[in-house]
């Protein structure tokens, strides 16, 4: 397995270089270094000299990808791409355009993102499994039909509706929790409750339908028929046997998204004023802060790679038939 992991890590290097290059190209396709400087310096009384000085001060005065004026390796290394991107592979994210240390910001903002995303995932999986089991139990009956219809309706509603509706109902009309905001340590709990509930409810439609399919797939297998033939109740068949086997695709799916939980939710964090990594990314895009955008895309790519590696490993743990080679 170790050889497999090492091989996967090596495979990840060209992927990460490609992601980096693509992010860089896309960013500077729509923004020139001058645009970035203008945005940072503000809209009033910005002179060409000030822009030039800013670019020099922030390392944006070099060619983007290829330095024709340099010689040898410097043609590639004395460029904005090299100066700004290579350190990422050492997880040195550098500084944002406003001077803040990106690594420190990521370290601080990761926790609020996790505080929302992790309980949302756990509660969501639990609720979805329960509902999917119920639908599977009542398969072919009117409860199943109406349950699926309800799931489709829930899936069809925009996230924004859940968020604004949830804030209006729970925060404004019922006044049960703060409408938005965040706090540190245990004080964060009262702020986390509403986004977690909304996140879990939002995921019920898609999650329940998916898990229902997993359960229905298992229900028609021979071992289930054997269990029923032995006289086991339908409840025991579902919860003791079907659930155990259907957990393989569910768990591997969950493992794949665990690393991405750090990245946070863009809209949820923005509406609830959660100072997580999702809102960090959105702000950086709006302010054309290449340092943060590049860092977050790179981090996302790394976590994605880790997520899929963990998925593969988890397959071997939950299903002995699978071998990594």
């Amino acid at each position: 397995m170790i050889a497999y992991i090492v091989r996967r890590i090596l495979y990840a290097i060209p992927i990460l270089i490609g992601v980096n290059l693509l992010t860089f190209t896309l960013f500077f396709f729509v923004n020139t270094p001058d645009d970035v400087a203008r945005l940072q310096l503000g809209v009033k009384r910005v002179t060409p000299e000030a822009i030039e000085k800013w670019k020099i001060g922030h390392g944006y005065d070099k060619p983007l990808l290829y330095n024709a004026d340099a010689t040898g390796a410097a043609q590639l290394t004395d460029t904005i791409f090299f100066k700004h991107s290579v350190r990422l592979f050492l997880f040195d994210f550098g500084r944002a355009d406003d001077g803040r240390d990106i690594s420190q910001d990521i370290g601080e903002r990761m926790w609020p993102s996790l505080a929302i995303a992790l309980p949302t995932l756990l509660i969501g999986v639990l609720v979805n499994i329960t509902f999917a089991m119920l639908l599977a139990f009542f398969r072919g009956m009117y409860l199943d039909t109406w349950g699926v219809v309800l799931c489709v309706i829930l899936m069809s509603i925009s996230t924004l509706f859940y968020i604004i509706g949830g804030q209006y109902l729970v925060g404004k009309l019922l006044r049960l929790v703060p409408i938005s905001g965040y706090d540190t340590s245990w004080h964060a709990i009262k702020f986390v409750i509403l986004p977690v509930i909304i996140g879990a409810v939002y995921g019920i439609g898609a999650g329940t339908r998916l898990y229902r399919t997993f359960f229905l797939e298992e229900i028609n297998k021979d071992y289930v028929r054997t269990g029923r033939a032995k006289g086991l109740s339908e409840f025991r068949v579902l919860f003791q046997h079907v659930l155990k086997n259907a957990m393989i695709p569910i768990l591997t799916g969950v493992v794949a998204v665990i690393p991405l939980l750090f990245i946070g939710s863009l809209i949820m964090e923005s509406f609830f004023g959660i100072p997580g990594l999702g809102s960090y990314t959105i702000d950086a895009i709006r302010h054309q802060d290449f340092g943060i955008v590049r860092g977050m895309v790179f981090l996302g790519a790394v976590l994605y790679v880790i997520g899929y590696l963990l998925t593969d490993i988890s397959y071997t743990l939950v299903d002995p038939r699978v071998r990594l080679n």
Binding site: P178, K190, I193
Partner: peptide, 21 residues
């Protein structure tokens, strides 16, 4: 949720939605 909120915030029944201590 309401019970948890009350326990953890240590606030009176009048201010469950208070974002400040």
């Amino acid at each position: 949720v309401v019970i948890i909120l009350t326990m953890l915030s240590g606030q009176t029944l009048a201010a469950w939605n208070n974002p400040y201590p």
